[in-house]
Computed example of a mutant assay.
Amino acid sequence: MSSLSNKIDFAVIFSVKNANPNGDPLNGNRPRTDYDGYGEVSDVCLKRKIRDRLQDMGKSIFVQSDEKKTDGMTSLKNRAESEEFGLGKNAFNIKKSTPEQTAKLACEKWLDVRSFGQLFAFKSESKDGVSIPIRGPVTIQAAFSLEPVSITSTQITKSVSGEGDGSKRSSDTMGMKHRVDSATYVAFGAMSPQLAERTGFDNEDAQTIKQILPKLFEGDASSARPEGSMAVEKVIWWQHNSKSGQYSSAKVHNSLRKHIEQNINNGMEVLFDAALLRDSIKTALPDLDVEIIDGF
């Protein structure tokens, strides 16, 4: 099967209402913000959600979260070397295989590996071993809010099970819970046909990711992100007419940024009206195919 035939750029616009979209463990799990107060959701967080949605579709995923683990493997190493769920130990032994062969097998088996890439450790006769870097064709930037965010922090009490026979209630402990009151975020991404040739990422894989982006937060509810508190509003999908693309990704993404800057004071309904959004982008990039997809 041939690899990705056309360069693709995309953007995901999502809203947050009374939720913590991405807590910072180094800052008391407060929602991430930059130095100017704009909300941030890391690229790692977004890739985690993409992997989870792909796994919900039944796709084979290498980097599985503990909550969604389907094979019982206790580590990535165990999954990679598993005979049943992975490539087997021989694939990582210099006497049995080569790094190139192992990388090819990993890309064929796991969709997230051939999409985002991965780094594998390869056993060799030297003490240091050999690393197998797989550079993926799909890149995603961190998402940032359109305006500085307002964060509300609430003190809560947490009850835990007491020791002994359970007849005595343990003392409550104090904690904090944080949320973004209301904000809209935008994340940009791209798919490179040149890198796709190395991993085998093809048009069908690109369409699979396109299919799950509008429902990125379905099945992702938690105490910090209650059901319905986060929603994809729009997915913007640009498909170029060649592998190299008509424009750089920076120019493509800036067409949306410019539309936002010009219309942000008109309200969100106007800002992300599909017809106005399409007209604005097509004015900036008239010969580039663009699709506006509503969130799920």
Rank of each mutant, 00 (worst) to 15 (best):
S115R: 05
S115Q: 04
S115V: 03
F116K: 01
F116T: 01
F116C: 03
F116G: 02
G117P: 07
G117T: 02
G117S: 02
G117A: 01
Q118Y: 13
Q118V: 01
Q118A: 13
Q118G: 00
Q118D: 02
Q118N: 10
Q118L: 09
L119V: 14
L119T: 10
L119M: 13
L119S: 10
F120M: 05
F120G: 04
F120E: 05
A121I: 06
A121H: 09
A121Y: 09
A121S: 14
F122D: 06
F122M: 06
F122R: 04
F122S: 06
K123V: 10
K123H: 09
K123C: 10
S124E: 04
E125P: 04
E125K: 12
E125Q: 08
E125F: 08
S126P: 00
S126W: 00
S126R: 02
K127T: 05
K127E: 09
D128G: 06
G129K: 03
G129D: 04
G129R: 05
V130K: 12
V130N: 07
V130F: 00
V130Q: 13
V130T: 12
V130H: 07
S131D: 08
S131Y: 09
S131T: 11
S131R: 12
I132Q: 07
I132C: 02
I132S: 06
P133S: 06
P133F: 03
I134F: 04
I134E: 01
I134T: 01
I134G: 04
R135A: 07
R135V: 12
G136H: 05
G136F: 07
P137W: 04
P137L: 07
P137S: 06
V138H: 01
V138I: 08
V138N: 02
V138T: 04
V138D: 00
T139Y: 09
T139V: 12
I140H: 01
I140R: 08
Q141P: 08
Q141Y: 08
Q141W: 05
A142W: 09
A142P: 02
A142R: 10
A142V: 02
A143E: 08
A143L: 07
F144Q: 14
F144T: 14
F144V: 14
S145P: 06
L146C: 12
L146G: 14
L146D: 11
L146E: 13
E147V: 15
E147G: 09
E147F: 15
P148R: 03
P148H: 11
P148D: 15
P148K: 06
P148L: 11
P148M: 09
V149M: 08
V149L: 10
V149R: 07
V149G: 06
V149N: 05
V149S: 10
V149K: 07
S150G: 06
S150M: 11
I151Q: 08
S153K: 11
S153N: 13
S153D: 14
S153Q: 13
T154N: 14
